[in-house]
Nucleic acid binder design. Structure first.
Lengths: 234, 234
DNA sequence: TCTACCCGTGTTGCATACAATTCTCAGTGC
DNA sequence: GCACTGAGAATTGTATGCAACACGGGTAGA
């Protein structure tokens, strides 16, 4: 054997990022599978099965799972295996509250400390999303939405808060995905963004905070409405 | 060998928490060593050395290090080993800003949603700290301070925010520890707490937010003063 | 028929072995 | 004297093996 997992790389992804370890790559791929819904919440994450699937041994798989465990995407129960984190209705509510607060904080900081260039870019991004909202393409809007919120995190100029917000966003991704398909949600979302952008651009910090908090709260309402309809109370 | 690490357990800690894995225990112990300053920032964390020290093999050590890596206490550089996270002056400032914002958010939520019992307990805790501040025992005050802030996190009734705040607090612990020894800092700290408690007890949410933000900002100032004096600019 | 126990099977946790990279430090050429 | 090179050592990343625990099915007993 030349190198662990060499077969896989040679097979189809030899230009894979070189400086990363298998464990990191696996953590990314498993996280991706969870976020996109390919691995449903509650699914068992069998170490050997994952190892076979990715063409590695159990060791890097275990390291990846433990890493995901600390981010909250995966629940690792000692000696009882790992499962994709089950989020109860209560936990979901707490996640949304936390995300709302952190996003609102980022918006307030952004209003205070975004550079003129960052403000112009945020404004342009918001304008571009108007077209997407009108066209009614949920997937494209969702992608732009991620960029939009990311720009606000970045504008807060605080990597700690930004990382936390991104992590929360990822954990909530599976639950938020569907709400963009609700009729009229895109336009309303864009309008809510408008209030946030206006406040940030003019440096009205408290208003930016309030507008963002309202926006996330409304997203939460949409999601809860969907969940109540789809799966009872989970 | 009957079981990995069995010798260690039999040797002196057989009543160790049974349901935990070695990796979890190690993560806790290493984190403790970092937080208390036994492992200084920048120290190399040699896997084999840690394994020998704790009487286990490298496997659980690696899992623990990766786990600590995602919490930010340790920096894991692929193929180049792990070191206790070096915090630059800029990062320290960002950590304090983040902690201030999150603590302030918790204080606001606590003002809105603490139960009467929780409010009474917070009040009692604050009263008890008056004596500690007067006696001038920095260690005892620091311990009570952790409990005090923990009570506010808990009062926010949001595990996500609470965990994040606790994590930030731990990461900043080494830097905050010394400031309680500054002359007069205990009394001032207690006075700042007083403003927070008064706002929370009477449900004035915005005021609780502002008071907590001010408190943390003042702590940051103390720490920065100390650092500038002690280690240049790091 | 139900409950309790036992044992087999599968899975996890850890130790160990080996491969591959990075690091160290002479030795060499300029 | 100094940078560069390359072998050896040290250290990390991954694979593999083994023991202990968790879970499930079957059997004995009430």
């Amino acid at each position: 054997m030349v190198r662990q997992g060499g077969a896989v790389r040679d097979g189809g992804e030899m230009d894979e990022a070189a400086g990363r370890t298998q464990a990191e790559r696996l953590a990314g791929e498993i996280a991706e599978a969870i976020v996109t819904g390919a691995l449903a919440p509650g699914s068992r994450l069998d170490e050997q099965a994952l190892a076979d699937r990715f063409g590695v041994s159990r060791t890097p798989v275990r390291e990846a799972l433990r890493q995901l465990g600390t981010t909250g995407l995966v629940e690792v129960r000692p000696r009882r295996g790992a499962v994709v984190a089950q989020v109860t209705a209560d936990q979901l509510a707490e996640l949304f509250v936390a995300m709302g607060e952190v996003e609102a904080t980022c918006a307030r900081l952004a209003a205070q400390s975004m550079s003129p260039l960052e403000r112009r870019r945020l404004d342009a991004l918001h304008d571009a999303m108007a077209d997407l909202a009108r066209d009614g393409d949920p997937a494209a809007f969702a992608r732009a939405n991620t960029t939009f919120h990311g720009a606000i995190y970045a504008g807060a100029h605080n990597a700690v808060l930004s990382d936390f917000a991104l992590g929360l966003r990822r954990r909530l991704q599976p639950y938020r995905a569907a709400q963009f398909r609700l009729p009229g949600r895109l336009a309303r979302s864009h309008a809510e963004h408008g209030a946030v952008v206006a406040a940030i651009l003019s440096g009205r910090a408290a208003e930016a905070h309030a507008a963002m908090l309202r926006h996330v709260t409304l997203v939460e309402s949409s999601v809860e409405g969907l969940l109540a309809r789809d799966v009872g109370e989970r």
